[in-house]
């Protein structure tokens, strides 16, 4: 098991180095970093001096090492357009994105799981057919269209819910939250639903498929022959074995939710990291793009690694097969 974890860790580090090289290339070779910092009246001698001071004349490897050192500390320089350290911008925006993502994940999990269990147990009910066919619609609907339709319905026609921004937020010093004010909670509703729908259909289908598979196995048949109640069989025995893959996928999906929140944030003008990134692409604000790239890659790599390790820990059968 240790070799497996070690191998996965090395792979993760390699991915981060690759992402680092791409972002470094972006920062270093897109446009001229010097002309992004100084005015037009700076003399060539001064520019050369600045270049020397900034270490831009150093060999590639040393430059990359410095970049990596700063990246680990979260420093990506100043934003070209906002003239503020990128790390500061991102940490201001992080709570908005995480709050939205986590609420959506919880919503998807707590609605998707019961739906999946229900559709697996009651295979032929009309509600099951309704859930399954609407889940296909859910998969075909692009996230941004769900958002627009919700805005049209609840924001424009009924005027019940706010359709942009976070509402009033409470500053806790290191975190800003919209969960403590009424307007904050109301602002959270539509974006959360928008972001959750796709994940919800995914979790429902997954739970259903796994549950159906488990219900076909021998130990369920024997349990029934022994006279266990259906309730105990379904919820105590089958559900437990259904949950392993569901945990994995849900964990992996957390990364996707953070990535997809980018679209939702754009639809609802939600002041999170995704919106910042989209605006940075529009303005060619390379430091923000670089920081977002590294951060999102790190989140994905970390989640994948954790889920892989968790999987081996949870399922003893895997330890023998992946051990070598």
């Amino acid at each position: 098991m240790l070799t497996f974890i070690a191998r996965r860790m090395i792979q993760s580090v390699l991915v981060m180095i690759a992402v680092g090289l791409i972002t470094f290339g972006l920062l270093r070779f897109v446009g001229d970093p010097i002309s992004n910092m100084v005015g037009q009246d700076t003399s060539i001698a001064e520019r050369e001096q600045l270049k020397e001071d900034l270490g831009l004349n150093d060999p590639f490897v040393i430059q990359f090492a410095n970049f990596a050192k700063n990246a680990v500390k979260g420093e990506f320089g100043l934003s070209y357009t906002l003239r503020v350290p990128v790390s500061q911008l991102l940490s201001e925006r992080l709570p908005a994105t995480l709050e939205l993502s986590i609420m959506s994940a919880l919503l998807a999990l707590f609605i998707g799981m019961p739906m999946g269990i229900y559709t697996a147990i009651h295979k032929d009910s009309w509600l099951t057919k309704f859930f399954l066919s609407s889940s296909l619609v859910g998969v075909s609907l692009p996230t941004f269209l769900i958002g627009i339709l919700l805005i049209l319905l609840f924001g424009v026609v009924f005027r019940w819910l706010p359709t942009f921004g976070r509402g009033e937020v409470v500053d806790l010093g290191w975190w800003t939250t919209g969960l403590l004010t009424w307007s904050g909670i109301k602002s959270l509703i539509l974006p959360t639903i928008t972001l959750a729908i796709f994940q919800l259909t995914l979790i429902m289908r997954l739970v259903r498929a796994e549950m159906l598979e488990v219900l076909r196995t021998d130990y369920i048949k024997f349990g029934r022959a022994r006279g266990l109640s259906m309730r105990a069989l379904h919820y105590r025995h089958a559900l437990k074995n259904t949950l392993i893959p569901v945990i994995t996928i849900t964990g992996l999906q957390l990364g996707s939710i953070i990535a997809f929140s980018l679209i939702t944030e754009s639809v609802f003008q939600w002041p999170g990291m995704g919106l910042l990134f989209i605006q940075a692409i529009g303005n060619a604000d390379v430091p923000i793009m670089a920081a977002y790239l590294v951060l999102i890659a790190f989140i994905f790599v970390a989640i994948n690694l954790m889920v892989d390790i968790l999987y081996v820990v949870l399922d003893p059968r895997l330890r023998t097969t992946v051990g070598d």
Partner: peptide, 8 residues
């Protein structure tokens, strides 16, 4: 469609 919607 999503990329175009996002303006990129």
């Amino acid at each position: 469609a999503t990329l175009s919607f996002l303006g990129v």
